[in-house]
Design a protein around this nucleic acid. Structure first.
Length: 464
RNA sequence: GGCGACGUGGCCAAGUGGCAAGGCAAGGGUCUGCAAAACCCUGAUCAUGGGUUCAAAUCCCAUCGUCGCCUCCA
Protein backbone atom coordinates (compact mmCIF):
# COMPACT_ATOMS: atom_id res chain seq x y z
CA UNK A 1 0.00 0.00 0.00
CA UNK A 2 1.27 3.43 -0.92
CA UNK A 3 0.42 6.78 0.63
CA UNK A 4 1.35 10.23 -0.58
CA UNK A 5 3.30 12.02 2.12
CA UNK A 6 3.21 15.81 2.09
CA UNK A 7 6.50 15.85 3.97
CA UNK A 8 8.42 14.12 1.17
CA UNK A 9 6.06 15.10 -1.66
CA UNK A 10 5.81 11.62 -3.02
CA UNK A 11 4.13 8.30 -2.52
CA UNK A 12 5.71 6.02 0.03
CA UNK A 13 5.14 2.45 1.09
CA UNK A 14 2.89 2.29 4.08
CA UNK A 15 4.53 0.80 7.15
CA UNK A 16 3.17 1.38 10.60
CA UNK A 17 5.15 1.96 13.77
CA UNK A 18 3.52 -1.05 15.31
CA UNK A 19 2.57 -3.94 13.02
CA UNK A 20 -1.14 -4.10 12.33
CA UNK A 21 -1.96 -0.90 14.20
CA UNK A 22 -2.48 2.56 12.76
CA UNK A 23 -2.33 5.63 14.96
CA UNK A 24 -4.21 8.33 13.15
CA UNK A 25 -4.95 11.94 14.05
CA UNK A 26 -7.10 14.33 12.08
CA UNK A 27 -7.48 18.03 12.77
CA UNK A 28 -11.11 18.76 13.47
CA UNK A 29 -12.91 22.08 13.34
CA UNK A 30 -12.71 25.16 15.50
CA UNK A 31 -16.23 25.24 16.82
CA UNK A 32 -17.27 28.87 16.60
CA UNK A 33 -19.91 28.50 13.89
CA UNK A 34 -21.93 26.03 11.86
CA UNK A 35 -19.81 23.56 9.97
CA UNK A 36 -19.96 23.62 6.15
CA UNK A 37 -19.64 20.96 3.48
CA UNK A 38 -15.91 21.61 3.20
CA UNK A 39 -15.50 20.37 6.75
CA UNK A 40 -17.65 17.41 5.79
CA UNK A 41 -15.42 16.69 2.81
CA UNK A 42 -12.36 16.48 5.02
CA UNK A 43 -14.13 14.29 7.54
CA UNK A 44 -15.34 12.03 4.73
CA UNK A 45 -11.89 11.71 3.18
CA UNK A 46 -10.36 10.51 6.41
CA UNK A 47 -13.33 8.31 7.21
CA UNK A 48 -12.86 6.54 3.89
CA UNK A 49 -9.14 6.15 4.52
CA UNK A 50 -9.88 4.77 7.94
CA UNK A 51 -12.50 2.35 6.63
CA UNK A 52 -10.12 1.08 3.99
CA UNK A 53 -7.37 0.53 6.57
CA UNK A 54 -9.88 -1.45 8.62
CA UNK A 55 -10.84 -3.42 5.52
CA UNK A 56 -7.18 -4.28 5.00
CA UNK A 57 -7.04 -5.68 8.50
CA UNK A 58 -5.49 -2.85 10.47
CA UNK A 59 -6.60 -1.84 13.90
CA UNK A 60 -7.06 1.92 13.73
CA UNK A 61 -6.84 4.29 16.66
CA UNK A 62 -8.52 7.37 15.29
CA UNK A 63 -8.41 10.76 16.98
CA UNK A 64 -10.17 13.88 15.86
CA UNK A 65 -9.95 16.94 18.04
CA UNK A 66 -12.17 19.91 18.69
CA UNK A 67 -10.59 23.30 19.13
CA UNK A 68 -12.97 24.63 21.74
CA UNK A 69 -11.17 27.73 22.94
CA UNK A 70 -9.72 30.43 20.70
CA UNK A 71 -10.11 34.08 19.68
CA UNK A 72 -13.06 33.55 17.37
CA UNK A 73 -15.03 31.49 19.83
CA UNK A 74 -14.51 34.11 22.51
CA UNK A 75 -15.35 36.94 20.16
CA UNK A 76 -18.52 35.31 18.88
CA UNK A 77 -19.66 34.37 22.38
CA UNK A 78 -19.16 37.94 23.53
CA UNK A 79 -21.18 39.24 20.59
CA UNK A 80 -23.99 36.85 21.43
CA UNK A 81 -23.66 37.51 25.13
CA UNK A 82 -23.23 33.87 26.05
CA UNK A 83 -20.54 31.77 27.69
CA UNK A 84 -17.83 30.74 25.20
CA UNK A 85 -17.77 27.20 26.53
CA UNK A 86 -21.52 26.88 26.01
CA UNK A 87 -21.13 28.17 22.47
CA UNK A 88 -18.41 25.64 21.72
CA UNK A 89 -20.34 22.81 23.32
CA UNK A 90 -23.39 23.54 21.20
CA UNK A 91 -21.43 23.41 17.96
CA UNK A 92 -19.60 20.28 19.04
CA UNK A 93 -22.90 18.51 19.62
CA UNK A 94 -24.17 19.69 16.25
CA UNK A 95 -21.02 18.57 14.47
CA UNK A 96 -21.17 15.13 16.08
CA UNK A 97 -24.71 14.78 14.78
CA UNK A 98 -23.56 15.74 11.28
CA UNK A 99 -20.86 13.09 11.42
CA UNK A 100 -23.46 10.53 12.34
CA UNK A 101 -25.77 11.66 9.53
CA UNK A 102 -22.87 11.40 7.09
CA UNK A 103 -22.21 7.84 8.26
CA UNK A 104 -18.77 8.75 9.54
CA UNK A 105 -17.49 6.27 12.09
CA UNK A 106 -17.15 7.75 15.57
CA UNK A 107 -13.60 8.61 16.57
CA UNK A 108 -11.85 6.46 19.11
CA UNK A 109 -11.35 9.67 21.07
CA UNK A 110 -12.42 13.26 20.44
CA UNK A 111 -9.94 15.20 22.56
CA UNK A 112 -10.58 18.86 23.25
CA UNK A 113 -8.17 21.68 23.89
CA UNK A 114 -9.90 22.60 27.16
CA UNK A 115 -9.49 19.05 28.45
CA UNK A 116 -5.78 18.97 27.75
CA UNK A 117 -4.61 22.06 29.63
CA UNK A 118 -2.28 20.37 32.16
CA UNK A 119 -0.48 18.51 29.38
CA UNK A 120 -0.21 21.69 27.34
CA UNK A 121 1.31 23.60 30.24
CA UNK A 122 3.77 20.87 30.97
CA UNK A 123 4.78 20.69 27.34
CA UNK A 124 5.39 24.42 27.18
CA UNK A 125 7.47 24.27 30.34
CA UNK A 126 9.70 21.62 28.87
CA UNK A 127 10.08 23.59 25.65
CA UNK A 128 11.17 26.62 27.67
CA UNK A 129 13.65 24.51 29.62
CA UNK A 130 15.10 23.17 26.40
CA UNK A 131 15.47 26.66 24.99
CA UNK A 132 12.80 26.27 22.31
CA UNK A 133 10.42 28.77 23.87
CA UNK A 134 10.45 31.97 25.86
CA UNK A 135 7.90 33.86 27.96
CA UNK A 136 7.11 37.53 27.38
CA UNK A 137 4.58 39.44 29.50
CA UNK A 138 2.50 36.36 30.20
CA UNK A 139 2.67 35.06 26.61
CA UNK A 140 4.96 32.24 25.60
CA UNK A 141 6.43 32.03 22.10
CA UNK A 142 8.11 29.28 20.18
CA UNK A 143 11.61 30.21 19.02
CA UNK A 144 11.63 29.21 15.35
CA UNK A 145 15.30 29.98 14.82
CA UNK A 146 16.21 27.35 17.37
CA UNK A 147 14.46 24.71 15.26
CA UNK A 148 16.87 23.92 12.46
CA UNK A 149 14.45 22.20 10.10
CA UNK A 150 11.59 24.60 10.64
CA UNK A 151 9.69 24.83 7.37
CA UNK A 152 10.35 21.30 6.17
CA UNK A 153 6.71 20.34 5.80
CA UNK A 154 5.59 23.35 3.80
CA UNK A 155 8.89 23.74 1.95
CA UNK A 156 9.53 27.24 3.19
CA UNK A 157 12.56 28.97 4.50
CA UNK A 158 12.44 31.53 7.25
CA UNK A 159 14.15 34.09 5.02
CA UNK A 160 11.53 33.72 2.29
CA UNK A 161 8.72 34.10 4.70
CA UNK A 162 10.12 37.25 6.20
CA UNK A 163 10.23 38.80 2.78
CA UNK A 164 6.59 38.14 2.07
CA UNK A 165 5.20 38.48 5.55
CA UNK A 166 2.08 40.57 5.68
CA UNK A 167 1.73 40.35 9.40
CA UNK A 168 2.30 43.17 11.79
CA UNK A 169 5.47 42.35 13.60
CA UNK A 170 5.18 42.12 17.33
CA UNK A 171 8.36 43.75 18.57
CA UNK A 172 8.37 41.62 21.70
CA UNK A 173 9.01 38.55 19.59
CA UNK A 174 12.57 37.55 18.81
CA UNK A 175 11.66 36.60 15.26
CA UNK A 176 8.58 37.60 13.29
CA UNK A 177 7.65 33.96 12.69
CA UNK A 178 7.77 32.98 16.35
CA UNK A 179 4.30 31.81 17.26
CA UNK A 180 2.31 31.74 20.48
CA UNK A 181 2.21 28.64 22.62
CA UNK A 182 0.39 30.43 25.42
CA UNK A 183 -1.61 33.63 25.35
CA UNK A 184 -2.08 35.86 28.39
CA UNK A 185 -5.73 36.42 29.23
CA UNK A 186 -7.27 39.77 28.48
CA UNK A 187 -10.22 41.06 30.52
CA UNK A 188 -13.44 39.03 30.07
CA UNK A 189 -11.65 36.09 28.54
CA UNK A 190 -11.68 32.55 29.89
CA UNK A 191 -8.35 31.55 31.41
CA UNK A 192 -6.39 28.90 33.22
CA UNK A 193 -3.70 29.44 35.83
CA UNK A 194 -0.19 28.82 34.58
CA UNK A 195 3.42 29.49 35.55
CA UNK A 196 3.20 32.57 33.30
CA UNK A 197 0.00 33.90 34.77
CA UNK A 198 -3.61 33.59 33.69
CA UNK A 199 -4.01 32.60 30.09
CA UNK A 200 -4.98 30.02 27.48
CA UNK A 201 -3.22 27.83 24.95
CA UNK A 202 -2.25 28.95 21.46
CA UNK A 203 -3.80 27.17 18.53
CA UNK A 204 -1.03 24.80 17.46
CA UNK A 205 0.08 23.46 20.80
CA UNK A 206 -3.17 21.67 21.57
CA UNK A 207 -2.77 19.15 18.75
CA UNK A 208 0.79 18.36 19.81
CA UNK A 209 -0.31 17.92 23.41
CA UNK A 210 -3.34 15.81 22.58
CA UNK A 211 -1.28 13.44 20.51
CA UNK A 212 1.35 13.19 23.19
CA UNK A 213 -1.32 12.50 25.79
CA UNK A 214 -3.34 9.95 23.86
CA UNK A 215 -1.08 8.44 21.19
CA UNK A 216 2.46 8.88 22.44
CA UNK A 217 5.44 10.58 20.87
CA UNK A 218 4.93 9.27 17.37
CA UNK A 219 1.91 8.58 15.19
CA UNK A 220 1.43 7.00 11.79
CA UNK A 221 -0.94 9.32 9.94
CA UNK A 222 -1.62 12.96 10.60
CA UNK A 223 -4.38 14.38 8.46
CA UNK A 224 -6.21 17.58 7.73
CA UNK A 225 -7.06 20.02 4.99
CA UNK A 226 -4.17 21.28 2.89
CA UNK A 227 -4.84 24.77 4.18
CA UNK A 228 -3.43 23.55 7.48
CA UNK A 229 -0.02 22.65 6.09
CA UNK A 230 1.25 26.07 6.99
CA UNK A 231 1.39 27.26 9.64
CA UNK A 232 -0.60 24.80 11.72
CA UNK A 233 1.04 21.49 10.90
CA UNK A 234 4.43 23.05 10.43
CA UNK A 235 4.19 24.37 13.96
CA UNK A 236 2.92 21.10 15.34
CA UNK A 237 6.02 19.43 13.95
CA UNK A 238 8.26 22.11 15.40
CA UNK A 239 6.79 21.78 18.88
CA UNK A 240 6.54 18.03 19.08
CA UNK A 241 9.84 17.18 17.47
CA UNK A 242 11.74 19.78 19.46
CA UNK A 243 10.35 18.16 22.55
CA UNK A 244 10.77 14.49 21.69
CA UNK A 245 13.65 14.54 19.25
CA UNK A 246 11.74 12.01 17.13
CA UNK A 247 9.79 12.29 13.91
CA UNK A 248 6.23 13.17 14.85
CA UNK A 249 4.03 11.64 12.15
CA UNK A 250 5.21 9.13 9.56
CA UNK A 251 2.72 10.24 6.93
CA UNK A 252 1.26 13.70 6.54
CA UNK A 253 -1.94 13.42 4.55
CA UNK A 254 -3.81 16.46 3.27
CA UNK A 255 -7.08 16.71 1.42
CA UNK A 256 -7.72 19.32 -1.28
CA UNK A 257 -10.20 22.11 -0.78
CA UNK A 258 -13.80 21.94 -1.79
CA UNK A 259 -14.42 24.56 -4.45
CA UNK A 260 -17.61 26.57 -4.67
CA UNK A 261 -17.78 28.63 -7.86
CA UNK A 262 -14.04 28.35 -8.30
CA UNK A 263 -13.15 29.40 -4.78
CA UNK A 264 -12.39 27.64 -1.58
CA UNK A 265 -15.42 27.41 0.66
CA UNK A 266 -14.48 29.05 3.89
CA UNK A 267 -16.01 30.84 6.78
CA UNK A 268 -14.00 33.97 6.15
CA UNK A 269 -14.96 34.16 2.47
CA UNK A 270 -18.58 33.73 3.40
CA UNK A 271 -19.39 31.38 0.50
CA UNK A 272 -20.81 28.73 2.73
CA UNK A 273 -23.13 25.81 2.25
CA UNK A 274 -23.67 24.43 5.74
CA UNK A 275 -23.81 20.70 6.32
CA UNK A 276 -27.20 21.26 7.87
CA UNK A 277 -28.53 22.96 4.74
CA UNK A 278 -27.04 20.31 2.49
CA UNK A 279 -28.55 17.42 4.41
CA UNK A 280 -32.05 18.88 4.23
CA UNK A 281 -31.81 18.61 0.44
CA UNK A 282 -29.65 15.55 -0.14
CA UNK A 283 -28.62 12.29 1.44
CA UNK A 284 -25.23 11.96 3.04
CA UNK A 285 -24.38 9.37 0.40
CA UNK A 286 -24.44 12.05 -2.29
CA UNK A 287 -21.71 14.11 -0.68
CA UNK A 288 -19.75 10.96 0.06
CA UNK A 289 -20.00 9.84 -3.54
CA UNK A 290 -18.82 13.25 -4.74
CA UNK A 291 -15.75 12.82 -2.57
CA UNK A 292 -15.20 9.26 -3.78
CA UNK A 293 -15.49 10.25 -7.42
CA UNK A 294 -12.36 12.39 -7.32
CA UNK A 295 -8.89 12.28 -5.86
CA UNK A 296 -8.79 13.34 -2.25
CA UNK A 297 -5.74 15.56 -2.81
CA UNK A 298 -7.33 17.52 -5.63
CA UNK A 299 -9.82 20.36 -5.30
CA UNK A 300 -13.39 19.08 -5.30
CA UNK A 301 -15.78 20.83 -7.66
CA UNK A 302 -19.02 21.55 -5.84
CA UNK A 303 -21.98 23.00 -7.70
CA UNK A 304 -25.57 22.15 -8.59
CA UNK A 305 -24.68 20.44 -11.84
CA UNK A 306 -22.15 18.13 -10.22
CA UNK A 307 -24.58 17.45 -7.41
CA UNK A 308 -27.23 16.42 -9.92
CA UNK A 309 -24.78 14.20 -11.76
CA UNK A 310 -23.78 12.55 -8.52
CA UNK A 311 -27.42 11.92 -7.59
CA UNK A 312 -27.83 10.10 -10.92
CA UNK A 313 -24.64 8.12 -10.42
CA UNK A 314 -25.90 7.06 -7.00
CA UNK A 315 -29.15 5.92 -8.63
CA UNK A 316 -27.12 3.76 -10.92
CA UNK A 317 -25.31 2.11 -8.02
CA UNK A 318 -28.71 1.43 -6.48
CA UNK A 319 -29.96 -0.08 -9.73
CA UNK A 320 -27.55 -2.97 -9.42
CA UNK A 321 -28.92 -3.90 -6.01
CA UNK A 322 -32.46 -4.35 -7.25
CA UNK A 323 -33.89 -7.87 -7.20
CA UNK A 324 -34.27 -10.17 -10.18
CA UNK A 325 -37.05 -9.58 -12.67
CA UNK A 326 -40.36 -11.24 -11.86
CA UNK A 327 -40.45 -14.83 -13.07
CA UNK A 328 -36.74 -14.80 -13.89
CA UNK A 329 -35.90 -18.05 -15.66
CA UNK A 330 -32.15 -18.07 -15.04
CA UNK A 331 -29.23 -16.68 -17.03
CA UNK A 332 -27.02 -18.52 -19.49
CA UNK A 333 -23.90 -20.36 -18.38
CA UNK A 334 -21.83 -17.86 -20.27
CA UNK A 335 -23.50 -14.94 -18.53
CA UNK A 336 -22.98 -16.53 -15.14
CA UNK A 337 -19.33 -17.05 -15.93
CA UNK A 338 -18.97 -13.42 -16.98
CA UNK A 339 -20.58 -12.41 -13.72
CA UNK A 340 -18.20 -14.59 -11.77
CA UNK A 341 -15.19 -13.22 -13.60
CA UNK A 342 -16.32 -9.66 -13.02
CA UNK A 343 -16.66 -10.23 -9.28
CA UNK A 344 -13.01 -11.25 -9.16
CA UNK A 345 -11.89 -8.46 -11.48
CA UNK A 346 -13.76 -5.88 -9.44
CA UNK A 347 -12.32 -7.03 -6.14
CA UNK A 348 -8.84 -7.04 -7.56
CA UNK A 349 -9.17 -3.67 -9.25
CA UNK A 350 -10.76 -2.11 -6.21
CA UNK A 351 -7.95 -3.15 -3.90
CA UNK A 352 -5.23 -2.24 -6.39
CA UNK A 353 -6.69 1.24 -6.82
CA UNK A 354 -7.19 1.85 -3.14
CA UNK A 355 -3.71 0.55 -2.36
CA UNK A 356 -2.41 3.30 -4.60
CA UNK A 357 -2.84 6.29 -2.31
CA UNK A 358 -6.55 5.65 -1.79
CA UNK A 359 -7.55 6.11 -5.39
CA UNK A 360 -11.26 6.07 -4.72
CA UNK A 361 -12.22 7.31 -8.17
CA UNK A 362 -10.34 4.48 -9.82
CA UNK A 363 -11.87 1.97 -7.41
CA UNK A 364 -15.32 3.37 -8.10
CA UNK A 365 -14.79 2.72 -11.79
CA UNK A 366 -14.46 -1.00 -11.05
CA UNK A 367 -17.64 -0.90 -9.01
CA UNK A 368 -19.51 0.54 -11.96
CA UNK A 369 -18.22 -2.26 -14.15
CA UNK A 370 -19.71 -4.73 -11.71
CA UNK A 371 -22.94 -2.72 -11.80
CA UNK A 372 -23.11 -3.07 -15.56
CA UNK A 373 -22.56 -6.82 -15.52
CA UNK A 374 -25.10 -7.35 -12.74
CA UNK A 375 -27.68 -5.40 -14.71
CA UNK A 376 -26.81 -7.35 -17.84
CA UNK A 377 -27.34 -10.61 -16.02
CA UNK A 378 -30.64 -9.46 -14.58
CA UNK A 379 -31.82 -8.32 -17.98
CA UNK A 380 -31.02 -11.80 -19.29
CA UNK A 381 -33.14 -13.37 -16.62
CA UNK A 382 -30.73 -14.14 -13.81
CA UNK A 383 -32.47 -15.20 -10.59
CA UNK A 384 -31.94 -13.63 -7.21
CA UNK A 385 -29.80 -16.56 -6.25
CA UNK A 386 -27.63 -16.12 -9.33
CA UNK A 387 -27.21 -12.42 -8.63
CA UNK A 388 -26.52 -12.83 -4.96
CA UNK A 389 -22.74 -13.25 -4.92
CA UNK A 390 -22.20 -10.26 -7.20
CA UNK A 391 -24.60 -8.08 -5.26
CA UNK A 392 -23.02 -9.13 -1.98
CA UNK A 393 -19.62 -8.16 -3.34
CA UNK A 394 -20.92 -4.82 -4.50
CA UNK A 395 -22.56 -4.16 -1.17
CA UNK A 396 -19.41 -5.13 0.67
CA UNK A 397 -17.22 -2.76 -1.33
CA UNK A 398 -19.74 0.07 -1.19
CA UNK A 399 -19.63 -0.43 2.54
CA UNK A 400 -15.85 0.02 2.51
CA UNK A 401 -16.54 3.40 0.97
CA UNK A 402 -19.03 4.00 3.75
CA UNK A 403 -21.99 4.43 1.43
CA UNK A 404 -25.19 3.55 3.24
CA UNK A 405 -27.24 2.76 0.14
CA UNK A 406 -30.44 3.08 2.09
CA UNK A 407 -33.78 2.72 0.40
CA UNK A 408 -37.20 2.60 2.03
CA UNK A 409 -37.98 3.74 5.52
CA UNK A 410 -40.23 1.85 7.91
CA UNK A 411 -43.19 4.18 7.61
CA UNK A 412 -43.14 3.64 3.89
CA UNK A 413 -43.08 -0.10 4.47
CA UNK A 414 -46.52 0.11 5.97
CA UNK A 415 -47.80 1.29 2.63
CA UNK A 416 -46.25 -1.59 0.74
CA UNK A 417 -49.22 -3.93 0.94
CA UNK A 418 -51.52 -1.23 -0.44
CA UNK A 419 -49.15 -0.44 -3.27
CA UNK A 420 -48.93 -4.13 -4.12
CA UNK A 421 -52.69 -4.13 -4.34
CA UNK A 422 -52.79 -1.13 -6.67
CA UNK A 423 -50.13 -2.59 -8.92
CA UNK A 424 -52.02 -5.86 -9.07
CA UNK A 425 -55.26 -4.12 -10.02
CA UNK A 426 -53.43 -2.03 -12.57
CA UNK A 427 -52.04 -5.18 -14.18
CA UNK A 428 -55.59 -6.41 -14.56
CA UNK A 429 -56.59 -3.10 -16.17
CA UNK A 430 -53.70 -3.39 -18.60
CA UNK A 431 -54.78 -6.86 -19.59
CA UNK A 432 -58.12 -5.36 -20.41
CA UNK A 433 -56.28 -2.61 -22.32
CA UNK A 434 -57.72 0.10 -20.11
CA UNK A 435 -54.54 2.09 -20.58
CA UNK A 436 -55.82 5.53 -19.68
CA UNK A 437 -56.78 4.36 -16.24
CA UNK A 438 -53.63 2.34 -15.69
CA UNK A 439 -51.51 5.31 -16.74
CA UNK A 440 -53.35 7.47 -14.24
CA UNK A 441 -52.52 5.03 -11.48
CA UNK A 442 -48.89 5.02 -12.54
CA UNK A 443 -48.71 8.83 -12.66
CA UNK A 444 -50.43 9.30 -9.34
CA UNK A 445 -48.20 6.77 -7.64
CA UNK A 446 -45.17 8.49 -9.14
CA UNK A 447 -46.35 11.73 -7.55
CA UNK A 448 -46.33 9.84 -4.27
CA UNK A 449 -42.78 8.65 -4.87
CA UNK A 450 -43.54 5.20 -6.23
CA UNK A 451 -42.02 4.15 -9.55
CA UNK A 452 -43.81 1.44 -11.50
CA UNK A 453 -41.90 -0.40 -14.18
CA UNK A 454 -43.55 -2.81 -16.59
CA UNK A 455 -41.94 -5.69 -18.40
CA UNK A 456 -43.34 -8.57 -20.32
CA UNK A 457 -42.91 -10.72 -17.24
CA UNK A 458 -44.97 -8.39 -15.08
CA UNK A 459 -44.79 -5.11 -13.23
CA UNK A 460 -42.49 -4.10 -10.38
CA UNK A 461 -42.49 -1.05 -8.18
CA UNK A 462 -39.96 0.72 -6.01
CA UNK A 463 -39.56 3.89 -4.05
CA UNK A 464 -38.16 6.74 -6.06
C1' G B 1 6.76 39.02 -4.43
C1' G B 2 7.89 33.71 -2.34
C1' C B 3 6.34 28.44 -2.12
C1' G B 4 3.09 24.64 -4.09
C1' A B 5 -0.71 22.26 -7.03
C1' C B 6 -3.53 21.82 -11.27
C1' G B 7 -5.19 22.42 -16.75
C1' U B 8 -7.89 15.05 -19.91
C1' G B 9 -14.57 14.52 -24.63
C1' G B 10 -20.61 19.24 -23.32
C1' C B 11 -20.00 18.46 -17.53
C1' C B 12 -17.49 15.64 -13.31
C1' A B 13 -13.18 12.60 -13.23
C1' A B 14 -9.23 8.23 -13.14
C1' G B 15 -4.69 7.28 -15.57
C1' U B 16 1.39 9.92 -14.90
C1' G B 17 6.60 6.54 -20.45
C1' G B 18 3.75 1.70 -24.57
C1' C B 19 -2.71 1.62 -28.54
C1' A B 20 -7.12 7.41 -23.18
C1' A B 21 -11.09 3.86 -16.76
C1' G B 22 -15.72 5.22 -14.95
C1' G B 23 -20.08 8.43 -14.08
C1' C B 24 -23.55 12.35 -15.90
C1' A B 25 -25.57 14.57 -20.26
C1' A B 26 -26.51 13.94 -25.71
C1' G B 27 -27.77 11.06 -30.26
C1' G B 28 -29.22 6.17 -32.33
C1' G B 29 -31.22 1.24 -31.19
C1' U B 30 -33.55 -3.18 -28.27
C1' C B 31 -37.69 -3.93 -25.00
C1' U B 32 -42.79 -1.66 -24.16
C1' G B 33 -49.86 -0.36 -25.51
C1' C B 34 -47.22 4.12 -23.97
C1' A B 35 -43.67 5.31 -20.36
C1' A B 36 -39.83 4.20 -17.08
C1' A B 37 -35.83 1.20 -15.94
C1' A B 38 -32.22 -1.85 -17.86
C1' C B 39 -29.28 -3.40 -21.97
C1' C B 40 -26.55 -2.39 -26.85
C1' C B 41 -24.09 1.27 -30.13
C1' U B 42 -21.75 6.38 -31.04
C1' G B 43 -17.59 10.61 -29.53
C1' A B 44 -11.59 13.10 -26.73
C1' U B 45 -4.70 12.32 -28.71
C1' C B 46 -5.01 14.73 -23.12
C1' A B 47 -4.08 24.07 -22.30
C1' U B 48 -0.29 25.95 -26.04
C1' G B 49 4.80 25.88 -28.10
C1' G B 50 9.43 23.52 -28.03
C1' G B 51 12.69 19.32 -26.38
C1' U B 52 14.25 14.11 -24.56
C1' U B 53 12.86 8.99 -26.22
C1' C B 54 12.01 3.49 -30.61
C1' A B 55 7.65 5.32 -27.89
C1' A B 56 4.76 10.96 -23.86
C1' A B 57 -1.47 12.89 -21.63
C1' U B 58 2.50 10.73 -18.64
C1' C B 59 9.76 13.23 -18.35
C1' C B 60 12.30 18.39 -19.25
C1' C B 61 11.90 23.81 -20.61
C1' A B 62 8.89 27.99 -21.84
C1' U B 63 4.16 30.43 -22.34
C1' C B 64 -0.95 31.14 -21.07
C1' G B 65 -4.80 30.08 -17.56
C1' U B 66 -6.98 28.40 -12.82
C1' C B 67 -6.48 27.43 -7.70
C1' G B 68 -4.20 26.96 -2.73
C1' C B 69 -0.74 28.63 1.15
C1' C B 70 2.34 32.74 2.88
C1' U B 71 -3.27 35.99 8.15
C1' C B 72 -8.00 32.59 11.21
C1' C B 73 -9.34 28.46 8.03
C1' A B 74 -11.06 21.12 6.74
Amino acid sequence: MQIYNTLTRRKENFETLEPGVVKMYVCGPTVYNKAHVGHAMSALVFDIIRRYLLYRGYQVKFLMNFTDVDDKIIQRANEMGIDPFDLAEGYIQEFQQHLKDLNILPATINPRATQTIPQIISMIQTLIEKGYAYPVDGDVYFRVQKDEDYGKLSGRKLEDMQAGARIEVDSRKEHPMDFALWKAARPNEPFWESPWGKGRPGWHIECSAMNLAHQGEQIDIHGGGNDLVFPHHENEIAQTESLTGKPFARYWVHNGMLQLSGEKMSKSLGNIVSIEAFLTQHSGDVLRLMVINSGYRNPLTFNDEVLEQTERALDRLHSALRPALPNAAGASEQMLQTLKNQIAATREGFVASMDDDFNTAGALGYLFELVRVINQARAEGATNQELQAAQDTLRELLNVFGLKMETPSTEKHQAAAFIDLLVELRSELRKQKLFALSDTIRDRLLDLGVVIEDSKEGSTWRWK
